[in-house]
Design a protein around this nucleic acid. Structure first.
Lengths: 205, 205, 205, 205
DNA sequence: AATGAATGAGGATTCATTCAT
DNA sequence: AATGAATGAATCCTCATTCAT
């Protein structure tokens, strides 16, 4: 007697578990977070968890895939007319917005280096590749318009933007670092990165 | 007639275990690294491990304390005559040197956010505080000599230097990021941070 | 749609484990009994054990609490009209009945002196206090009715009844001591305790 | 270059370890007491322990054998002229004297029921048999002199004397039981045991 | 779909014992 | 004799996962 399943409900339940997983992974790391705690946070039984995710592994992958989707959505929603350099600034602002949730910051730093499970490594790589290629395209466009230094390849600049954002995230988890207060300095650093070193001091005065 | 115990041997054995721990933690994270694997890497029996470290926890703490000692040693060894701004550059170079060992980079990113175990959190905080206060002193000295912008407090600049180094570390673990190749760009970013935003082009000549 | 959990099944499983624990503890002592053996006796997996009892410790406590409940049940079920002195005799008979199970006798003697774990010590004390206070009340009532010597306080006599029962239990575990054969002698000793020393030999004949 | 070994020193060291073992066994039981703690109490290294006792097992056996020796010494030292009934009373007083050391009481109750290790079981049995046979002989002699009831076999009375002493010991470990205060009551109970039930009041005068 | 009881492989840690010095 | 470092089997307990209801 199959109940008429409401896909919306199913999706909501998945998101509920994903949210709990984000919390638990951010606090204890992947291996340190137990499915029992995730269930407790989500307010569900263990059976329900494995109804929606076949393994703990798959939950982490789902979280990462959600991140990829979000990244794609961000770049897809850009106004094509907006100057690429502005888009890069927007991206940083967008990332800072995510990091306002300390769980997101903790998740990024703690999960970042996992290479043990192949599936997770693949998902992490996919996350990385997506952001990197999208950023690279925008950087390249900005270079073509002369808005960004061109002594470095676009891909390398993209990586360094991600480096700055990752460093920023790693600081969020420690005390005394206010995301909103520090955001302008992040933009300043990204600006310095994209502008390149100060024009030679040879400027005669 | 107690045998004269050789403290050097004991210390060597501890370092051997610490080294194995660094490897395992960097690869699998704290919770994901098993004492069995650490023992296997170190080539010892499980009993020997717990003969030297009462808990897995204490091994992590010992690694972090070693990091603190190294940081202190670095700053203590500085020539007092060296310009502070140069010392900051030296520090970054020193940090890059550590990160040449990919285990160190992995360790930093993976262990960074652990707050579950109070002892670990305390050791992490001590590590953080040591580096931060030493850097702050040097930054402050540099500010007094006019070598570094003074529109931001020294402590905040110190944190941002650490931010850049942490971001750098987080990139080491991902492929296609060569420490030596990227080091100059890190110095460039630190330089931009300490110089502050490009002086307004309105500066009349 | 949560399945209506059957508390009776859960309770039955708990009792099954408690029974196995009684066997193992009686035979090897608390520390000497392994959870693995308890599981084997109970015919369950180790996971099931810890599903019902968080620690081996808690199993022992549960056994002791069951003993407390039984003691309370015994005294509660007494006919208020029954002469207190008879109730004391009934209690001794009841205790002897328990000791017919050699596991009970072994359990009492082996577990009696544990003071290392605070929780166990507390549970043992609760067991002790319950029996002692109930016995004391009955002894006091018997004293008021002139059925028991009153040159000693009721509490002290209660303790001595327990002493006799404990001594009896300690003999059950050694060979050549048949509970049923020896029970009358126990009653005789309790009688001597409650009557006090033989009336002075000054009785002239 | 064998050092001239002083047998007295060796014996003293053994006794030192035996004393530490008594303490540890009484507090934690046999399995619960670790050789490490025994060494700590004795103030020696683990190597020294196993120099004097090949196994933890053998230490317990040694303690029990010491008890046997002491029992034999007690009965051997009796004045043959002393009335047997008095000797029984002396024995009880002697036992009470031992129990003034709470470790002895704890040791007796906690170790009493071990049957797992054959060697220990044998040593316990030897302890039991020694005391029992010696007591039986004295009881039998007292019966022949009409000082003790003879409606029960001497052996059974001997067991019951031990039962009373064991019960007494089991109470020492619990609080509020002063050995010296309670000793007279123990003698009273032994007296009642040896006298038998109060002669029927029908005894015509 | 939802639940939680059951499972057993695996994990951190303990411990009696050995052995080179 | 004395020591303590080293060992690995054994122990308590955890945890992802399965499954009947």
């Amino acid at each position: 007697m199959p109940r008429p399943i409401d896909p919306a409900l199913r999706r909501a339940r998945r998101l509920q578990i994903i949210d709990a997983g984000l919390t638990a992974f951010a606090e204890h790391g992947y291996a340190g977070a137990t499915t029992a705690e995730i269930c407790r946070i989500a307010g569900i039984g263990s059976g329900t968890f494995f109804h929606h995710f076949p393994t703990k592994n798959s939950l982490l992958v789902a979280i990462l895939e959600l991140g990829v989707e979000e990244t794609i959505a961000f770049f897809t929603a850009r106004d094509p007319q907006r100057p690429p350099r502005q888009v890069l600034s927007d991206y940083v602002e967008h990332a800072v917005g995510d990091l306002a949730d300390p769980r997101a910051a903790g998740f990024i730093t703690v999960v970042g280096g996992l290479t043990a499970h192949p599936e997770i490594a693949a998902a992490l790589q996919a996350d990385e590749d997506t952001t990197r290629s999208r950023l690279r395209d925008v950087v390249a466009a900005a270079q073509q318009q002369g808005q960004v230094r061109d002594d470095l390849p676009a891909d390398r600049l993209a990586v360094w933007i991600m480096l700055l954002v990752d460093g920023f995230a790693s600081r969020v988890t420690t005390g005394g670092f206010d995301v909103r207060t520090e955001a302008p300095l992040l933009q300043e650093q990204v600006g310095a990165l994209l502008d390149g070193p100060r024009s030679t001091p040879t400027t005669p005065c």
